[in-house]
Amino acid sequence: MNPIPEVLRLVIYLTCLILFAALNAAYLVWVERKGAGHIQRRIGPKEVGPFGLLQPLADGIKLMTKQLFLPAGVDPVLFKVAPILLLVPAVMSFVTIPFSETLVARDINLGLLMIFAFASVNVLGVLIGGWASNNKYAVISAARAVSQNVAYEIPMLITVITMVMVTQTMNLNEIVMQQPNIFKWYVFRFTASPLMPVAFLIFFICSLAETNRAPFDLAEAESELIAGAYTEYPGMGFGVFFMGEYANIVIGCAVTTILFLGGWQCPFGLAPGWWWFLAKLYLLIWTVVWIRWTYPRVQFYALLNLSWKVLIPISLVNLLLTGAMIKVF
């Protein structure tokens, strides 16, 4: 008999996951500003609390106390719906991510598919937010976000299909269990396909582009489009968009960790658990921040060319090669 009823367990998990998403959004902003500061030989936030650690709290209070007014000419319903459309699918995706062997809200067999099903919805949030804002910059940004997302979803899903062919399952926990130590991580599984590290790179680049992160952050290129689709959003409307963005980054890195880097398994087979998962997850997130402040923003045509002319052909070759390897060996 279960000590706590299933409904209560799910409510507790959902509360914790929303809290996790919110805390991550708050402190990843701090990490980002601190990282940007140090990379550019500045200190970054330092006034509020030790090392500026209370800065996210101050930001949160500032955002929440601002008036939520509707600018003239916006579509009042869609303007309010758009941030929710971005955040809710991201929180839904957290439901199936295994933080450790037992620490998972809902261990469904189609976990991988579920994450991509919900991840495909968030572009609708940016699109509708940009359109409802009734602002030229926002509309341009929305158009860019869509063409970028459509372009990068293809190599990403082809890579995922390749991975599913190798793992033979879409259950995230089972995928993690197939990688008990560093030599069995899927990045280094050369017996499955000699192009595995390339697949990892393609997946990581695509997740950067899907979450609108630099060098692919053309949707909110602040030097040309002010803040893109979020230009007109005041106070917490903007805050919710930001939470959604960071939640998506966390999900992208979590899926990369699970698919390629062994999830909650230890590299040396010692004491597997959620600590390993979080360590790998935050290492990847730090890489994302690092890339943002290292590489300049690419041109929009270069971005689309990279996807259609480089990533898609390579991922298709990888798909064929993996299929051949499975058939032959």
């Binding site: 579920m114 099903a117 919805v121 572009v123 609708l124 158009a143 869509v146």
Partner: peptide, 26 residues
């Protein structure tokens, strides 16, 4: 049939609706 349900999300909400919205915007 969770598979069909997730495919419905992936294809109809994630792709068809986005395409229609994009077409309207243009």
């Amino acid at each position: 049939s969770p598979f069909v349900a997730l495919m419905e999300m992936l294809i109809y909400v994630g792709a068809v609706c986005v395409t229609i919205a994009f077409a309207i915007m243009l």
